[in-house]
Design a protein around this nucleic acid. Structure first.
Lengths: 352, 352
DNA sequence: TTTTAGCACTCTTTAACTTTAAGTGCTAAC
DNA sequence: GTTAGCACTTAAAGTTAAAGAGTGCTAAAA
């Protein structure tokens, strides 16, 4: 079905009003609020047609209409106007994402910022093909070593190893060399296994300190896999989560790594992907929309930044936020400079 | 009022039943469930006296009784039996708190473990008199420096500084020396100011890299102040939070640093402090109980581990958990060894 | 003197019913 | 093609009634 101008206008108004109000939209509301130059009866007839064509739904017979998945999809693809981010939001982003820290730290900052601006949970998934590039071992006191692992994509992980014995400088140097020789190029997801091999092969001589060093590294890397989302508390404000059971279900769902992974995998081809409601094969996600953006640097895929929320989300704002973040992120990472007037002590100033 | 044996038994049963069920406890329940060898009428008379004496409360006339703050207090001080932690919990703690990482990392592990075992939010406050002991600067690549700050109490913070220019090894050595000379002994809470002074005084010569280094440090330290609690999602399961507004209020409350600080400050004298309901001067906390434990190492006060939840919390289990953690923590920190059969790769195994 | 059976009383919870309000779909007229 | 008008449906809000839980008191029993 081809939608004529009037139908498009009506659909667009229904979507936008519903995104704003969370209430089914009636014909009278449309006429008054959106200045459609027809009577409510005409609008009703049009809405009926839109419903029959699958763009709108009616929770019950005496309620207004809400957009269907198909309706949202049409809106996103054809009706939605590109939206500029407000200066407030731009300033907030600029002041908060300051470029300090490694790739992971910046990923985390981004997730926090996005979840605050959009009041919605945000998930970051990292590309799991990243590899170890370089390892440094620093002696920071008699029995404490700091082990620094740098990845190809610019992630720096470090961990403290508490030694049971003291250790000489030349031992540390040897250890560093061996670790680098054996581990450089290892995919991070295989590090665990690789570490075991290193022990077997080359590090028998260091048995006194190896357990401490290797276990510390393993632990640090395992910790990393866990914290991948932020902003859960924001959904409490949304009317669709006024029921505590829905909140629990939602939290459980996005804490289940498999569900999130399944949702994010299939959208690898295009940089910005939008999966609305029942477009998602995972049934548990059928009431939600996931918008995600591939993050790249020098044409290398670093990971995916995803926003997950109810279908009734602010698509225009979400998309413009992600796009702005993306441009900024590229800049932050590739230049190696912090990009603007960051003074270093205004990181607390943004919104709360 | 002196409570005779029967009253003590009744009070104790009311408290324990209410902690378990979250429902007001009636006389019949007590007789049947706790095998009191009296009729329900006798129990009713006793409960009336207990209410008049202020140990029990009645939500409304046709409901059972719930403990008052005074009732909980009497229970905690006189009736509660010391409880052994279950083997499941002990194993979980042992496998999760593995001694890897610095003091902060262990603090964080502890907060996570406690909040999981007790299903309640946990707050860690750190002693803010900790001072900088030693600073190392490590060059990890052409334009990347890793700055490591060690505190007197064993906290290790590090941050990446991205430089705008390359830097020579001898410059790094000089920089390290100056930083150590000027900053060693500085209280962490004054670090921000101290860093400004250092720039003014000794580091004019390094102006090319100083902004990067100093700002990175400042940012890292500011980040540290934020994340002090975990386990908020656990309260969703508790019946007192079936109303979403209560959840919101609670989250707001414990996110407000001032409230938590005010609650924790006044209990500095004894190592285990229990503040029940209206004993807390902060009105917003009058429906909650805070149990906290001072954490020490070598007689040095490191910080406070606090559990915050509804008055109706499992006091016995909370206390035994904190005590066990405390003993384990001491062990973990002072020995410099990981304490038991940690294999390093079982950190994911505990409960989810 | 202490304990207990019995019962009237209070208050909450639940269910059933009624009313109100919102918004539709259809018809017939414009 | 558009619109006024109206009967109709349904959810939400309000009302009333009944059921259930637990008490406090009285008077009798131990």
């Amino acid at each position: 079905m081809n939608l004529d101008e009037r139908k498009r206008k009506i659909l667009s108004s229904v979507v936008e009003d519903y995104i704003e109000s969370a209430e089914p939209v009636g014909s009278k509301t449309l006429v008054e609020k959106y200045h459609l130059d027809y009577s409510s009866a005409t609008i009703r007839n049009e809405m009926k047609l839109l419903e029959e064509a699958g763009y709108l739904e009616q929770p019950h017979v005496s309620a207004g209409r809400i957009p269907s998945t198909k309706g949202y999809r049409y809106y996103v693809d054809n009706l939605m106007k590109e939206r500029k981010l407000s200066m407030v939001d731009i300033n907030y982003i600029d002041n908060t994402i300051n470029g300090f820290g490694d790739t992971d730290a910046i990923f985390e900052q981004i997730a926090d910022v996005v979840s605050k601006i959009l009041s919605t949970p945000t998930v970051i998934t990292k590309n799991n093909t990243d590899t170890i590039e370089n390892i440094k071992v620093v002696k920071i006191s008699e029995k404490l070593l700091l082990i620094v692992l740098m990845s190809k994509n610019g992630t720096v992980k470090d961990c403290i190893a508490k030694l049971t014995d003291t250790v000489e400088d030349d031992v540390i140097e040897k250890l560093t060399n061996i670790l680098n020789k054996d581990l450089a190029g290892t995919p991070i997801k295989e590090l665990h296994l690789a570490l075991n091999n290193v022990i077997m092969k080359d590090l028998q001589a260091f048995s006194g300190i190896m357990d401490d060093v290797v276990n510390s590294i393993k632990y640090e890397m395992s910790k990393d896999m866990k914290k991948l989302n932020s902003g859960i508390e924001n959904i409490l404000e949304k009317p669709e989560f006024s029921d505590i059971d829905k909140v629990k279900n939602f939290i459980n769902m996005i804490s289940t790594k498999e569900i999130i992974d399944s949702a994010l995998q299939k959208s690898k081809d295009n940089k910005l992907s939008i999966v609305i409601g029942s477009e998602n094969k995972e049934v548990l996600l059928n009431d939600y929309t996931i918008i995600s953006l591939d993050i790249e640097k020098d044409n290398k895929y670093l990971g995916k930044l995803s926003v997950i929320g109810p279908k009734r989300m602010n698509y225009a704002k979400t998309i413009s936020t992600l796009k702005y973040i993306n441009s900024k992120f590229k800049n932050t990472l590739t230049s190696g400079k912090k990009n603007n007037n960051v003074k270093g002590d205004n990181s607390e100033k943004g919104r709360k």
